[in-house]
């Protein structure tokens, strides 16, 4: 089973994504409400995927992405951003993010990204 770490400051979003993932046979090994927790959890849990909210208090998703990539350049991180925040996504993509999802997250979209990543 593929392991996923969910990073989002909103507990509701974490909860909803966890449900979607578990329904589709992914194992959610960790949930982090902020960037620094995410980095610690990544190092400890070594998930196959990370979903990363961009707008978070303290260390934002982009900074967290960079930190995780420093530790593990092969980390697969899916950035999650809200509609209308193109600029954040651009910044993330320019910082090395490859995958991203736009909120509100739909189950089919989330699963498509993950299965496409697994395929390649």
């Amino acid at each position: 089973m593929k392991k996923v770490l969910i990073v989002d400051d909103a507990a509701f979003v974490r909860f909803a994504m966890k449900k979607m993932l578990e329904k589709n046979g992914y194992e959610v090994v960790g949930e982090a409400p902020d960037g620094s927790t995410a980095i610690l959890q990544y190092k400890e849990l070594r998930p196959d995927f990370v979903t990363m909210d961009i707008t978070m208090p303290g260390m934002n998703g982009i900074e967290t992405l960079k930190e995780i990539k420093k530790f593990d350049p092969n980390a697969v991180i899916i950035m999650v951003s809200a509609m209308g925040h193109e600029n954040f996504v651009k910044e993330a993509v320019l910082s090395g993010a490859v995958y991203f999802l736009v909120k509100p997250i739909k189950e089919e979209n989330l699963i498509e990204v993950l299965s496409k990543i697994i395929e390649s």
Binding site: V13, A16, A82, K103
Partner: peptide
Amino acid sequence: MHTIKGSSAM
């Protein structure tokens, strides 16, 4: 507001 926006859309 950002969080509420995201959650309510869901």
